[in-house]
């Protein structure tokens, strides 16, 4: 087993164990911090896959941005000392069955295929990704920037209007 393989198992465990905590923990704050470990594990897997730019983006945007937003949401909407995020117990069993079913089907589909085994050579990724974004994927790139602008304005409007109605 090579060093990279050892790191794969470490990062896979770092992904999946906290992901289970996210799903099954009764405490919303524990869920949010477990999500941090999961996102870090995914960033590690990106690094192992040779996607250095994406790994750094994952850390910056997901852990630095989205997770902080989610924690803000948790703090805003909960009484901090009573953070019971109880699941509907009658739905829990059905949800677990559904999840196991999804996993079994996906895993069976994955393991039933003879995938190409040779990984491509690792290269620095920022320059080719930048070139692709400004040539082949220019239209999606522009559309997603417009989307971000709309979301920015929309989030402010949604948040602000409700405050004004409360006054």
């Amino acid at each position: 087993m090579s060093t990279a393989d050892v790191f794969f198992w470490i990062f896979a465990a770092l992904c999946l164990v906290p992901a289970a905590v996210v799903v099954f923990s009764r405490n919303l704050v524990y869920s949010a911090f477990a999500l941090l470990a999961t996102l870090a594990g995914v960033a590690g897997l990106y690094a192992l896959l040779g996607a250095d730019f994406l790994a750094v983006t994952q850390v910056l945007v997901y852990i630095g941005g989205i997770l902080v937003l989610i924690l803000f949401g948790v703090m805003f909407t909960q009484k901090v000392y009573d953070l019971k995020a109880e699941a509907m117990s009658f739905k829990r069993v059905r949800a677990a069955v559904l999840g196991v079913l999804v996993f079994v089907v996906l895993a069976a589909a994955v393991l039933g295929v003879d995938w190409p085994q040779a990984p491509r050579d690792m290269q620095p990724t920022s320059a080719p990704i930048g070139n692709l974004l400004l040539s082949e994927y220019l239209l999606p790139f522009e559309m997603i920037s417009v989307l971000l602008l709309v979301v920015l304005v929309g989030a402010v409007v949604v948040g602000k209007k409700e405050v004004r109605e409360d006054e």
Binding site: A12, L16, A19, A85, A87, A95, G99, V110
Partner: peptide, 22 residues
């Protein structure tokens, strides 16, 4: 396939969270 199975497990956990959480 190892990466794909890890991703399948993540997806299944995400679906469980979406369906069962309140």
């Amino acid at each position: 396939q190892h990466y794909l199975v890890v991703s399948a497990a993540l997806a299944a956990l995400g679906i469980i969270a979406m369906v069962s959480r309140r």
